[in-house]
Each structure stands twice: as C-alpha cells, then as structure tokens.
Amino acid sequence: MPVSQEPSNVPLLHALLAHVAFIRLAGFATGVLANWAPALFGYYAKYCAALAGRLDDIAFNFPTTVWAAVTINFGPRTVSLRHRDYANLAWGWCPITALGNFNPDVGGHLVLWDLKLVIRFPPGSTIAIPSGLLTHSNASIGGRETRFSVTQYTAGAIFRWVDQGCRTKEEFVKKMTASEYDAFLVTEEGRFNEGLAMYSTLDELRSSDAESDLSELDE
C-alpha cells in the first residue's frame, strides 16, 4: 500500500500496482531471485510470511513479490546518480527494471563502479543487484528520449525487527543478561557472512532441482 504520498498521487499508484503489466514485472523479478539465488529467495519469502502473520493489515505491493517496497520513477528522463542503498538488506538483491523509449546503445547504461562494469540496459530489461553493496548509477539519455524505472527492495531494519520478535532493538535487548547480550553481539557480527552464504554458485544451481534449465550455462 502506498504510504507517505500526496493524496492526489494515491489513486494513480493503486492503479499502477494493480495493473497486470506491473504484477507480471514483479513476478518476473521474483522468478529471477528464486532461480539464481534460491536460498536468498527462501530468506525473503520467510520474512514476508512472518510480516503477514504478525501484521494483519499489511498489504504487499504485488501478489507476486517477496520485497516489501517499490519505487516507481516517473522520469520522464530518470537518471540515478552514483550511490549505494545503505538502508537495504546488505546482502539482499534489488531488482531494477528500465522502461521508456531511449537508445540503449547510446545511453541508459547501468554502471557498477566497484566492479568497473558498464552494462547495456535497454528498455524492458530487469537486473538484480546487491544495491547495498555495489556503488551504482545509470548513464544519461538523449534530451528527447524518456526513461522510467521500477525498483523493489526491503530495508535491512525489517529483517532485524522480525528477528527481534517484532520489536525494536532497544526493546529486545533491555531485559537481556550480560551473557545474553554478548551472544546477541556475536550473532550480529556473523549476520553478513551468513547472508553471503545464501548466494549460489553455478555448480550449485546446476545440481539443484530448480525449474529453470541451467545445464547449458558456460563455465
């Protein structure tokens, strides 16, 4: 459900979120995560279910998504400046879909600064990246061209809130003993490495029971 919006925008956002094209777009992104990082997909799905079980009035943006939030950039010439999304789940994947009418050979490229990659990113394409880890931006487009984007993500604080019994950190730790708090800190320190372990290798994907046929992937 759209929050923190101008009242005049809410009907339009509801209409977009209910449109079959956006529902399919969200479902495709979910399928990408499920096929290429099945353990990470399971992690997202688990926490979505936990939120739904805890908050009776929660309404996810799409019936086909495992992400809690969506941003629709209306452009008309959307350009993302160089940044990292620090508030997102640190090892989580963020699907980005480019829309509009522009020449992808000339502009609109996705730039992953840490990896020194510039990726052709034409309209209708979706890519999933760990946006909290990788510094990213996109190239500008022509003055008479249009570019829009749809991005899904989940804040890391949501996962922590669920892990803390649907409480803030302050509420969660205030009744802990010293030894319990020390154990909590150890768990917190290991969280990132546990998250990275949810990534899949190509060998793991080939040997999995995933529905997608990955047997012809090159090394």
Results as ranks from 00 to 15, higher is better:
residue 174 K to G: 09
residue 185 L to D: 09
residue 218 D to N: 15
residue 135 T to Y: 14
residue 216 E to F: 11
residue 92 G to D: 04
residue 3 V to H: 09
residue 156 G to E: 05
residue 134 L to D: 00
residue 3 V to E: 12
residue 117 L to Q: 07
residue 149 S to L: 07
residue 11 P to L: 05
residue 104 P to A: 06
residue 43 Y to L: 02
residue 19 H to R: 07
residue 116 K to G: 15
residue 158 I to D: 15
residue 210 A to Y: 05
residue 62 F to C: 11
residue 119 I to S: 00
residue 144 R to I: 11
residue 90 A to D: 11
residue 109 H to S: 07
residue 102 F to L: 04
residue 8 S to W: 11
residue 101 N to G: 12
residue 87 A to M: 13
residue 219 E to V: 06
residue 178 A to K: 12
residue 10 V to T: 03
residue 82 R to G: 13
residue 14 H to R: 10
residue 29 A to V: 05
residue 202 L to Q: 08
residue 163 D to I: 10
residue 181 Y to A: 08
residue 160 R to S: 13
residue 171 E to N: 10
residue 61 N to A: 13
residue 34 A to M: 12
residue 144 R to D: 14
residue 139 A to W: 00
residue 29 A to S: 12
residue 84 R to P: 08
residue 166 C to S: 11
residue 204 E to I: 07
residue 149 S to R: 01
residue 38 P to F: 01
residue 30 T to Y: 02
residue 65 T to L: 01
residue 162 V to Y: 04
residue 111 V to K: 01
residue 47 Y to H: 11
residue 79 V to Y: 01
residue 136 H to N: 04
residue 203 D to H: 13
residue 78 T to E: 04
residue 186 V to I: 14
residue 176 M to A: 09
residue 34 A to T: 04
residue 117 L to D: 05
residue 88 N to M: 01
residue 188 E to G: 12
residue 24 R to E: 14
residue 46 K to D: 15
residue 219 E to S: 12
residue 60 F to D: 00
residue 127 I to S: 01
residue 157 A to Y: 03
residue 75 G to Y: 05
residue 162 V to D: 04
